[in-house]
Structure formats: C-alpha cells, structure tokens
Amino acid sequence: MATVAAAGAHEAHEHAHYTTTGLNHRKIAMWTFIGSECMLFGSLISTYLVYKGRSVVGPFPHEAWTSPTGQAFKPILNIPVTSASTFVLLMSSLFMVLALAAVENKGKPGYEGLLGASKFWLAATAAAGATFLGFQAFEFTSFVHEGLTIRTNLFGTSFYTLTGFHGTHVAVGVLWLMTMLFIDLKRGLEPRDAINVDIMALYWHFVDVVWIAIFTLVYLIK
C-alpha cells in the first residue's frame, strides 16, 4: 500500500492548477492514505494486544520461562537496546523537519550554512532510518537465536508481524528519502520542490508516531 501512496503522491499536475481548497492534490491524498494506515496499524496493534499473554509456550516478552525439557528462557525483550533505536528514529523526525525547512527556505537569509544544507539533512534522516532498521535486524536475529521465531508462539507471530510491518514502512521511507537525496544531488532541490519533501515528511512522521505507539504498548507496558 505504501507504493500506492507513493504513486499517488508523486503524480499530479506540475502546474499550479486551480484547486477548490487551494491545497495540493498529493497532500490531500497523503492524508487519506495516512487515515487508512491508521486502520491497518490499529488492526495489527489490536491483534497484538488481544493475544498478549495468551501464548501457550514461551519465550515470553516480559517473563522468564522454563520449557518442559528444563531449558530456561529470560524475558526476551531488550528494552535498553530498543530505547536507543527509538531515540534514533525520533531524532530522524527532527532531521526531517530540518530537511524540509532547508528546502523551503533555500537561498533565504539565515539559511546559508548548515540550516540550508538540505542534502545533509536528507542524508541524516535516511541514515537514522537505516540505523533503526539495523537495530531491528539485530533484534530479530538475536531473538531467533534465543529461540523465538514467527512460528514459535502467539507472541512471536504477532510481535514479528507488527514490528515487521512497521520496519517495512521505515524501509519504504528510507528508499523514498534516498530517491529525494539523489534528486537533490543531481539537480538541487528548490523551494518549489518543497511540497514533495513536505509530503514525504508527512509519511515519515506518521511512521515515527506509529513507532511511539508500538514502543509503548509492546515494550514498556508489562
């Protein structure tokens, strides 16, 4: 669905046509897309919560577990590590804001230096997103080593699906950011391109907000 939104988002009349609301078509489409994404993540998160504590076998997220064969499992969630990755993702939203401001105000007084360096901020946002994905890859790998796969129990099934869907959204965002960075490197983004960055930023912030919900509900609340 993210591709659909990207398709809708990039497509539109380049010229300033009359619009009823004065808003850009793509921006309205992105908001409706975010509305549908809320329902998608709402369903995924609800399912996770409904299944919380209903796994027949471990490992469990917050409790230790000893298997019938006597194997001991620690609580599997590593909250300090995920807090770090959460911090990185939240910082990426800040970088995104600065990237948008840099493109919007390119050439204006006060935006000559770092504040106007859209390439830097786009690269920083993409890098932060990629770092978050790296953390997630590390997390998934270590969980599998500790004995939790997507097939192990209801927790594994609903946890990997929920966080995996979120990770896929981050990956699409990173791809989008890198495409924008490529355009910036190739021809330089101008204030008239700000709408494109703005729409991408909407998507990126949404993906961040969803993570705040997931981090709170999955990791912090026992």
């Binding site: 669905m1 998608l40 995924l44 409904v50 097939r151 129990n153 209801l154 699906t161």
Partner: peptide, 29 residues
Amino acid sequence: FPVITAALFFLQFDRFFGTNFYQVQAGGD
C-alpha cells in the same frame, strides 16, 4: 479495507509461513 488487509495478511502468513494467528492449538482465537 485496511482491516481486512490485516486479517488477510494474518491468514496469508498462517498459510504460507506457518504462523499461529488462527491456530487454536497455539492459543489463537
């Protein structure tokens, strides 16, 4: 539609990747 998309993903994962969303023996509802 996103709600059935999620439900279908669960079913798809159960069918193709062996997850437990609708597996009663694993505690699925």
